[in-house]
């Protein structure tokens, strides 16, 4: 079931939270950051704007700003320091409406 980057080693008995990643429904655990939630099934958070490589965060403490991800509506968020919430709609690429 879990084929992404993150390996859950502890604290596995938490309630599930449903969210959407690039339009597909996914499950995270309550208390997960957006970064954990996205990298449990996936391998990256976003594409770099300056190179070909995808990015998956770096510092996890709000200092490097590598982990900004898109929401389908509304502002971007810093994945390492934002808890995932039920119904969140996240994207690894900019929404089409973005200029």
């Amino acid at each position: 079931m879990n084929t992404g980057r993150i390996v859950r080693l502890a604290e596995r008995d938490r309630v599930e939270v449903q969210f959407f990643l690039d339009g597909e429904m996914r499950y995270a655990l309550a208390g997960d950051t957006v970064l954990t939630a996205m990298l449990a099934p996936g391998h990256a958070l976003r594409k770099s704007e300056f190179g070909p490589e995808p990015r998956a965060g770096f510092c996890l403490m709000g200092a490097c700003q590598d982990c900004w991800v898109w929401q389908e509506a509304g502002p971007r968020l810093r994945a390492c320091s934002t808890p995932v919430t039920g119904g969140m709609r996240l994207r690894t690429t900019a929404p089409e409406s973005w200029p």
């Binding site: 980057r5 993150i6 390996v7 859950r8 080693l9 502890a10 604290e11 596995r12 208390g31 997960d32 950051t33 954990t36 990298l39 449990a40 965060g57 770096f58 510092c59 996890l60 403490m61």
Partner: peptide, 14 residues
């Protein structure tokens, strides 16, 4: 530090 935070605050390996 990130690896440690992931483990402590999320219970995960990166």
């Amino acid at each position: 530090g990130a690896a440690q935070i992931a483990l402590k605050a999320q219970g995960v390996a990166l």
